[in-house]
Amino acid sequence: MKHITDDDLTLLYYGEHENPELAAEVARSPELSRRFEALSSELLRMDELMPPVRADNYGSDVWRGIESKLISADLPAASPWKSWLSTMLQPRFSLAGAASLVLVASLAFMLGRQASQPIELTPAGSDTQTAAAYPGLDTERLLTASVSGHLEQLNLVLTQFAIQPQTSSTEAERATDMLVANRLYRKAAEDQGKHQLARFLAELEPLLIELAYEAHKASPETLNRMQQEVRDSLLFRVRVMNQQLKQPQIST
């Protein structure tokens, strides 16, 4: 019989020993039982080490402590963040936006969602039709990549809005473009059976509508409320969804 070491007993104590017979073996042997009991008693002593108590609202305190730092944590240190508009108009963003719009249009075309063909009349689940029309084209991957790019832009826009919600008609136009893209992606996601993604994009629409049509004339209170919504929920969810899209094994 193999010698039972204290390391074996430690693994047994933590339920991690590979030998399922070890517990019975220890129970049969008075010597092993004594050693196991000693080890258990000593390790149980550690449970008397009680951390200092924190109040029930500790989580709220932590949130208050980090809330303002979360947004600034996203910013490159040297960027002159005059407004979310100024950055949106930077070439990097504009190019990404243009590329995104091209992808949206391409995607709509390839999925048979051209303007000449009413979206509402197209039957759901038309993957086979699309695949047949464009053999060898991975439309699912294209959709995923396109939406991921869309969410990255949205993340940037929302981050900047959360810092400085100044708005203008130009910004509203940009938000309108994003709203249109968002709706096209949602429809494409629905058609591909990606219901979780479609629902998520649908949930973004009310805020995009507000950014497009309301923000430039909204009261400070309304802007504050929108900012809060972006900080507390939307930004994080956009990031998580984008991350999920980058993991092909996760069904969206």
Partner: peptide
């Protein structure tokens, strides 16, 4: 789930872990 909710849910447990690792409350 929003990030705020995750903070509310995990703060206590993270504090206990952090304290056991560093031994200092603050």
């Amino acid at each position: 789930m929003a990030f705020r909710e995750l903070v509310l849910e995990h703060s206590h447990a993270m504090f206990r872990l952090a304290w056991r690792l560093c031994g200092d409350e603050n």
